[in-house]
Structures are given as structure tokens and as C-alpha cells.
Write a protein that binds this DNA or RNA. Structure first.
Lengths: 194, 194
DNA sequence: ATAATTTCTTGACATTTGTGAAGTAGTTTA
DNA sequence: TAAACTACTTCACAAATGTCAAGAAATTAT
């Protein structure tokens, strides 16, 4: 009994039906992986090799800026798909690293296999467009949050929407993701707990 | 001789070829509109009726927050497609108003007609996905800019990339878009000019 | 041209957040 | 268990930005 794929199918079913045939295709092309904490599963500078589904664990995207600082641009936990979408689809080298913050269980499908399975049915295309739209909406909301909310409000919102991230991800990654200095974030946290 | 459509075709050709047949379809379904300054072409609360191509002029998206403040979330000038993408595609009521900052020449296609023309060819689907990806990338970059750049740096970047927006759009809209208080933006501008 | 309106700037002061160093606590490794 | 490392907090001070009111400048309407 493979709970990885059950997790995957349950997640997909949130948006679309997934016929048995398609489940078989998934089982054929998605491969389970187990990564330990601090593994870089896709390095910057290369075209992403895989489309990833997080079964469990926490993964961040980060890049190195001109001053050599790590900038965390995204943090995700399972169950969820994630990838450097634009680079994955355009086959251009990504500027981002994908980093396992904790031990992670993934299901991964190779780029080429995505092209193959895409020809098998319209369902996948529809699903892909929906995922793209979700991602678009997420990025848009994030940019609005960062233009309209204070550092404290951004932290409160993250804590409310993703409490498990606060509990499982080191605060300096969270600080970078929120665009707040780690010291300032610490101060904000201590103010809030009074 | 219709310069509106020449502008449209030239813009599309930046990404894909556009056969004569498809040009005819465009001429059939896209309708020219002329709006005067300060017209709201799509109000918040409704499902967007049109997909828009700006031939000339400046348009912003804005919504009203809980405190009654106008928040400008996007500013576009021609030539360019623009829409409240997620609401347009999902047929859900938008929370955003589309506001002509200046007199605007548009080409518009109705939602239903997009569905019709989509069935006519794969080119449009490919083009749509590319536009979606562009939009996704733009939103992502914007959120990164707002987490990593100071107010002054954001203004400098906008001025560099879109000098015509600085010259043609009132600064309080720009300030809102950049997430800067209008007074602070004025100070930043005066510091820069020294 | 005058008035009315909108847009932009300026200034004093408040608040938020950044900076960098130091120190504490917790966790991992040997 | 000790040592090493990582994560987190705290502090004093600096810098950036917000707030709000007043007024100047520019634009639009009468």
C-alpha cells in the first residue's frame, strides 16, 4: 500500500477527477525520493530536471544576490506541487536553488516525461493551467502583501495561514522570505508575545 | 488603414507568428474602443467582460481596502494585453477596478468570443500560456523586488524600466503601486535630484 | 482670466525597521 | 560529556519611511 501516491491523488482530486488510467500513468512516471535535511535537490545554474510533488517535509527556494546574501523566495510544505515554474517550462537555467529544510519525501517526474504524458490527455493540460493560475495568484497576493502590510503584519499573516512553517522552519529563512532582518523579526516576535 | 490592428499584430509577433487567417479572426472579434481619462472600464464586483489590449494610454488596477484606501496593484501602458487574469479565466467577480488614467485606445474581445476563438486553433492556446507565464514571472519579480529593495531602490528601478510611467501617471498612484507614502516618495525624488 | 480642483512638495516629528555585536539557549557531533 | 555549531534573542544606536498639515504649483473648469 503506497501512501505516497494516495497523498498525490488526494491532492489532485482537490481540483480535478483523476481516472484510474491516469493514476497508472502517474505510478509509472512519478518516482519516490527520500532526501535528508539540507540536501539541494535542484542547484542554481541548471535547467530544472524534475517537476516535484512534496509528500512531506519543508523546502525553500533561494538564490544568492550580488552581495552574496541568500535570499529565500519561497517556502513550501507538503502536500503540494512545486518547481521553478518558468525555468522548468522554458527549459532555461534557473537562478534558484531548491533546498530541503527538513527530511523530505517527494514524488518526482522528469521534464521529458512531462512532455510525454502531456500528449496523453487534455486533463493534464487543464490541470497544469489551473496550477499555473494558482501560482500566479499566489505571487500576486504576495506582492500585494509586501506593498501594503508592515513587517509585523506580514509575520502575523504567515503565522495565521501557515503555523506549521513557523514551527518547522528556522527563523532566518522565514525572515528572508518575509523581507525582514532576523533581529527585527525577533523583536517583532517578542513584542507580540507581550 | 487600421493602425490599431497593426499595433496589435506587431505586438503578437514579438512572441508568435500570426497567419493571415488568424488576423482575420482578430479583426472580426476585437472591437476598437476609445475611453476618456478617468473612465472605469471594468468595475470591481463583477466578472470581467472583456480581454483588453491597450493600443495607447495608461491604465491601472486598483481596489478599495478595509480602511477605504485605494490600493493601486498594477499600472500598464500600451502596447500590451491586460486583464484581471484570474477572475477573467475563472469567471469570478473581480475585486479590482480597471481605471483609465489617461485617454485610452483599446482593442477588446468579449469573454465568450475568447472561448469561441480558442477552439479555432492551437496557436492561441500556446500564446495564452506564454502570456500567463509572462504574467506569473512579472508578479514573482515584483514580490521579490518588494521584499529585497528599499523604497528608493524600487522607485529607481521603475524609473529606469518605465520612464514613461513616471512622466504620465500621477505620483500618488505610483506611490501606492510602489508601496510608498506619497510624501515619502516626494522626499525620495528630491533627494535623488541633488 | 479666474476660480476650483488636483497634484506635488516640504517640514517637524513619530514610528518602524535595519545594523552589528554580544550573549543565551539549544542541538549535533565526536 | 565536552566541544562545536546552529538558532535565537537582546541591546544601543542609526537610518528609512510614515504621518499629517500646510502650502506651492500645475491643471482643469467656468
Amino acid at each position: 500500500m503506497d501512501t505516497n501516491f494516495q497523498t498525490l491523488f488526494n491532492y489532485i482530486r482537490l481540483l480535478v477527477d483523476i481516472p484510474l488510467d491516469d493514476q497508472e500513468i502517474c505510478r509509472k512516471y512519478f518516482k519516490p525520493f527520500l532526501f535528508t535535511k539540507n540536501t539541494i535537490i535542484e542547484p542554481a545554474g541548471r535547467v530544472p530536471e524534475y517537476h516535484n510533488f512534496i509528500v512531506s517535509g519543508y523546502i525553500r527556494n533561494f538564490y544568492i544576490d550580488e552581495q552574496g546574501n541568500e535570499i529565500t523566495t519561497d517556502i513550501n510544505d507538503g502536500p503540494r506541487f512545486f518547481t521553478s515554474y518558468d525555468h522548468f517550462m522554458n527549459k532555461t537555467p534557473s537562478n534558484e536553488n531548491l533546498h530541503c529544510i527538513t527530511d523530505c519525501e517527494l514524488l518526482r517526474i522528469k521534464r521529458n516525461d512531462v512532455d510525454i504524458t502531456a500528449k496523453l490527455g487534455i486533463t493534464q493540460m487543464e490541470y497544469t493551467v489551473q496550477i499555473l493560475q494558482q501560482q500566479l495568484e499566489k505571487n500576486k497576493q504576495r506582492s500585494i502583501d509586501h506593498t501594503t502590510l508592515s513587517a509585523e503584519q506580514r509575520y502575523i499573516k504567515l503565522r495565521k495561514n501557515f503555523p506549521s512553517i513557523i514551527q518547522n522552519v528556522p527563523l532566518n529563512y522565514i525572515a528572508s522570505y518575509l523581507g525582514i532582518n532576523p533581529g527585527s523579526l525577533s523583536r517583532i516576535r517578542s513584542n507580540l508575545s507581550k
